[in-house]
Design a protein around this nucleic acid. Structure first.
Length: 460
RNA sequence: GUCCCCAUCAUCUAGCGGCCAAGGAUGCCACCCUUUCACGGUGGUCACAGGGGUUCAAAUCCCCUUGGGGACGCCA
C-alpha cells in the first residue's frame, strides 16, 4: 500500500509550492488506494502557532483535499522521541556534545575562511573529557565516517553523497526538544510512509535522515524530490512576489480546480494535455515522471485556466460563489441570463462580479470619450423611438424576444446598428462597450431600461 | 567556499538515438465571426546555453565550460 504525507511546519499560511507537493502526494496515494497523511511539524515551539496550523488546514479544505486518519502534531509526541534519543545514547549511536553555540560559530567561520564546508568537528564523539559544568548538552547522532550514501530518488535518479560530507548533526537540543531531521525520519517510519514526495530543497538533508533510519533499523522510504517553483522572473519565490498564500487565490476569485490544474502542470505533464479534471489527475498522475528542473509560474496561464473553469461552472454554483464577492443575484431566469453573458468574459470571480455589477448597477456617469464618439445629432431621436417601441405593450422576457425587437427596430427605422447600439450601451452601462444588448435588455427588464435611457437623454 | 541538483520557444512543456529543417499550450500579432467589448475559429511569431566527444545517425548518451538553483542551523 502506498502511504504518503504532507508535513508543513506551521509558521505561516499554506504556500502554493507546498500545495503542489501536497497535491502530488495526495494524488499518488489516492491513485493507489493508499493513504495520504497530514503531519504538523511543530518541534520548534518558539516559531509555531496554532493559527498557522489552522490556516493551512483551511486551505486544504478549500481545495478539497482530505487527509486520512488523525492529523499528527509532533509537539505532542516529544515523549516518544525522547525514548529514541535515549535508545541511541544507550547503544552508543549518539552522544552528548557540550560545545557552546559561540564555539560552533567560531568553528564555522574558520572553516569557511579555509574554503571548507562548515561542519561539526566530532570533538565530543568519542571524548573521554569531563563535561564542563553548567552546560546543557545537545545530543548528536554518530553518522558514518566513510563510504557513500546513495539516495535512489524517484525524480532525480541515483544521487550519491560521501558520508564525509555529513556531520554528526544534532538530534536533540539542549532543552531536550528533538530536531527536524530526527523526528521526520521517525514519524515517517512509524506511520508507515513509504513514498516521500517533497521539495528538492530537502535532497541534501536526505543523507542525514537515512542515517537516522539506519541507526534505528527502519526501512528507508522511496523519495521523490520535486523541483522548486520559481517566480515569473525565474528567481526564487518570496513574499515579494505576492499571492504566495493559497487563500489569496480564493480571495482573488480563482476556482480551486483551476489552481490545482495550474499547479499540476508545473513540473509534470501528460503528453500535450492541459486541462485535467480531478478524476483525470487521479487516473494519470505518477511521480515517476515529474520533471527534474525547476519551473517558473506564469499567472497568465492560471488566468486562462480559471476562465475555462468559470465558463464550465453551472450558474447556480457561480451565483453562490459570487456572494462571497459582494454580488447577490435574484431570480432564476435573471441569474441565467446575467451569468451566461458575463461568464464568457471573466477571468476571475472578481471580474465576474464586477461584470455583473456593471450591468445591474445604474451608471453614475457616462464615459466622456465614448460620448464624443458615439453620440450623434440623431441619437436623441433614435433613443426616443426605441422607448416608444419598448412601450408598445408586448410582453418580452427572453433575450431572443428582445433580439427580435432590436432587429425589427433597426429594419423599420432604417438605422444602422451602431447608431442604436453605442448610445444605448452608454445609457445602460455608462460606456459604449459591454455585453450583448438583447441579453442586457432581458436581464434589466423594460422599466429599468426605459428609466436609464430617459436619464441619459436628459444629459444630452 | 564545499557538496548536491538542473539546463528545449518570453513562460509551462512534448521529446526518452533515426518518425524533429523540434510538436502542444499560455502570451503576443494578424485575419475571420460580430451591434461594441469579450468569447470562439484560423494563421503567424518564438527554443534544443556553448564547446568537445561517442555513433552511419544526437535535442536525446558521455565530458568540460557557462549559467541558474538548493544544502551546509540547538529552522523545517
Amino acid at each position: 500500500m502506498v502511504v504518503t504525507r504532507f508535513a508543513p511546519s506551521p509558521t505561516g499560511y499554506l504556500h502554493v509550492g507546498g500545495l503542489r507537493t501536497a497535491l502530488f502526494s495526495y494524488l499518488w496515494a489516492r491513485r493507489n488506494n493508499g493513504k495520504f497523511l497530514l503531519r504538523i511539524e511543530d518541534t520548534d515551539l518558539a516559531r509555531n502557532s496554532q493559527e498557522a496550523a489552522d490556516a493551512i488546514l483551511e486551505a486544504f479544505e478549500w481545495v478539497g483535499m482530505e487527509n486520512d486518519g488523525e492529523i499528527l502534531y509532533q509537539s505532542r509526541r516529544f515523549d516518544l522521541y525522547k525514548k529514541y534519543v535515549a535508545k541511541l545514547l544507550d547503544e552508543g549511536k549518539a552522544y552528548y556534545c557540550y560545545m557552546s553555540k559561540e564555539e560552533l560559530d567560531t568553528l564555522r567561520e574558520t572553516q569557511m575562511a579555509n574554503k571548507q564546508k562548515p561542519m561539526y568537528d566530532n570533538r565530543w564523539r568519542d571524548s573521554s573529557e569531563t563535561p564542563p559544568a553548567g552546560v546543557e548538552p545537545v545530543v548528536r547522532l554518530k553518522t558514518p565516517l566513510e563510504g557513500d550514501v546513495v539516495v535512489d530518488d524517484g525524480v532525480k535518479g541515483k544521487v550519491t553523497f560521501s558520508w564525509t560530507e555529513i556531520d554528526d548533526f544534532i538530534i536533540a537540543r539542549s532543552d531536550g526538544t528533538p530536531t527536524y531531521n530526527f523526528v521526520v525520519a521517525i514519524d515517517d517510519a512509524l506511520c508507515g510512509i513509504n513514498h516521500v514526495i517533497r521539495g528538492d530543497d530537502h535532497l541534501s538533508n536526505t543523507p542525514k535522515q537515512i542515517a537516522v533510519y539506519q541507526a534505528l533499523g527502519f526501512e528507508v522510504p522511496r523519495f521523490f524530490h520535486v523541483p522548486m517553483i520559481l517566480n515569473e522572473e525565474g528567481k526564487k519565490l518570496s513574499k515579494r512576489d505576492g499571492a504566495m498564500d493559497v487563500m489569496d487565490y480564493k480571495r482573488k476569485g480563482y476556482l480551486p480546480q483551476a489552481l490545482l490544474n495550474f499547479l499540476i502542470r508545473l513540473g509534470w505533464s501528460n503528453k500535450d494535455q492541459e486541462i485535467f479534471t480531478f478524476d483525470e489527475m487521479l487516473a494519470m498522475f505518477d511521480p515517476n515522471n515529474i520533471n527534474k528542473s525547476a519551473s517558473a509560474y506564469n499567472l497568465e496561464k492560471l488566468d486562462w485556466l480559471n476562465s475555462h473553469y468559470i465558463k464550465n461552472t453551472p450558474n447556480e454554483t457561480l451565483a453562490n460563489l459570487l456572494e462571497g464577492h459582494g454580488v447577490a443575484i435574484t431570480g432564476h431566469d435573471r441569474r441565467e441570463i446575467l451569468l451566461d453573458m458575463a461568464k464568457e468574459r471573466s477571468k476571475t470571480l472578481m471580474e465576474l462580479a464586477s461584470a455583473i455589477k456593471a450591468i445591474i448597477d445604474e451608471p453614475l456617469e457616462y464615459n466622456e470619450k465614448d460620448m464624443e464618439k458615439s453620440v450623434t445629432p440623431e441619437t436623441s431621436a433614435v433613443l426616443n423611438d426605441f422607448i416608444m417601441v419598448l412601450s408598445d405593450g408586448k410582453e418580452r422576457h427572453l433575450p431572443s424576444e428582445y433580439q427580435e425587437m432590436i432587429d425589427a427596430f433597426v429594419h423599420d427605422k432604417g438605422v444602422k446598428m451602431p447608431m442604436l447600439g453605442k448610445p444605448l450601451r452608454l445609457a445602460l452601462f455608462g460606456v459604449a462597450t459591454g455585453p450583448n444588448l438583447a441579453d442586457a435588455l432581458a436581464a434589466l427588464g423594460k422599466e429599468t431600461v426605459i428609466a436609464r435611457i430617459e436619464k441619459f437623454l436628459k444629459q444630452l
